[in-house]
Simulated assay, not measured.
Amino acid sequence: MTKALILVGGYGTRLRPLTLSVPKPLIHFCNKSIVEHQIEALVNQAGVNHVILAVAYQPDAMIDALHHLESKFGIRITCSREEEPLGTAGPIRLAKDLIVENGDDSDSFFVCNSDVICEFPLKEMIAFHQKHGQEGTILVTKVDDPSKYGVVVAEDDGKIERFVEKPKEFVGDCINAGLYIFRKSIIDRIEPRPTSIEKEVFPVMAAEGALYRMKLQGYWADIGQPKDFLKGMHLYLDSVDKKWKKGQIEHDDEIPKLAKGDKFIGNVLVSESATIGDGCLIGPDVTIGPNCRIDDGVRIQRSALMEGVTVRSYSWIDSSILGWESTVGKWVRIEGLTVVGQDVQINKECYINGAFILPHKGINNSIHTSGTIVM
């Protein structure tokens, strides 16, 4: 399989204020852009050599990022630009000429939702797709409370019978995980207009017996909002830890090494260019990006620090995301799912609880009320 279409057209409103500075797919998740996680898996596991990005928001920034990723992975990356939001199926039709262009003899292609982070069992998906021989394969994941989702109901062999939206009675516990393999013939099912693949395309395919599901073994998360971003970070770091312990490492450059030592508790990922002072306690579930500076006596847990963040001495950070080049003063306490945008300066001895702080702001007073937006 040589091609993959990644759906990156959303505006990323749920991850604001981070997406006010950087398109959502380029935000670093565990020190690597979200889209790079997906491209890396597509290249290393499935042999994809042409990635198509369905882009609507901040296309120039996405295009600028392509050159680095093309060079790094030795593949071709192109953009299919939406002039208007086309839903989850419309971008597939829009990219038709790129998907079916001459010289590509592959019958099928991948489609990925850019919010998804998981184990990416792409080799297994290809084998399953080829075995059943039908038009489409959906990756599904098991959830504890299916009443909150659209449930995929299928036979034992994986043939999908129907989809049930937020069922009041139990009909199954598997939901769409946002990763697909399709034959190119699916393009002709999609009209050139905003279209939902879940509501308009999949039910017809299922009725024809042309759609199968494969169950995901391992973690999965939709990381499109802060709470789920941090949950996905926990699941990813836990998966990395288990792989190292079991020796299941196929690509040393793909699986990062976790930080070890007296300063760290649980699973922590620290960029090689970051510095951490004396008397710090970091973890569990923390990622610290490139060129971050953590001064003495800092406590950080369940949080993500983007590139260039500075945390001054004796500050406390819990369950929060700090944007690029932001500075946290001495003796600051940040908690309650706070999200700090780019280049924010938080003065010493402030208390921040569950706030959303837009880029380039200076914070001189405490914020006690959760949900406060600083514009």
Rank of each mutant, 00 (worst) to 15 (best):
I126W: 08
I126G: 02
I126Y: 06
A127T: 15
A127Q: 15
Q130W: 05
Q130M: 09
Q130A: 12
H132P: 03
H132V: 06
G133E: 08
G133I: 09
G133Q: 10
G133V: 08
G133M: 09
E135F: 05
G136M: 07
G136K: 00
G136S: 12
T137D: 05
T137M: 01
I138H: 02
V140E: 09
T141A: 03
V143H: 04
V143E: 01
D144R: 13
D144F: 13
K148I: 08
K148W: 07
Y149H: 15
Y149C: 06
G150I: 08
A154M: 13
A154N: 10
A154H: 11
E155R: 15
E155S: 14
E155P: 00
D157W: 05
D157H: 08
G158Q: 11
G158C: 12
K159C: 14
I160R: 04
I160K: 03
I160N: 01
R162G: 02
F163R: 11
E165H: 14
K166G: 09
K166V: 00
K166E: 15
P167E: 01
K168C: 01
E169D: 14
V171T: 09
V171C: 12
V171D: 07
G172W: 13
N176S: 10
G178W: 06
G178A: 05
F182D: 01
F182I: 00
I187T: 07
R193H: 06
P194S: 06
P194V: 04
E198Q: 15
E198R: 13
K199R: 14
P203W: 02
M205G: 14
G209D: 06
G209C: 05
G209S: 09
G209P: 01
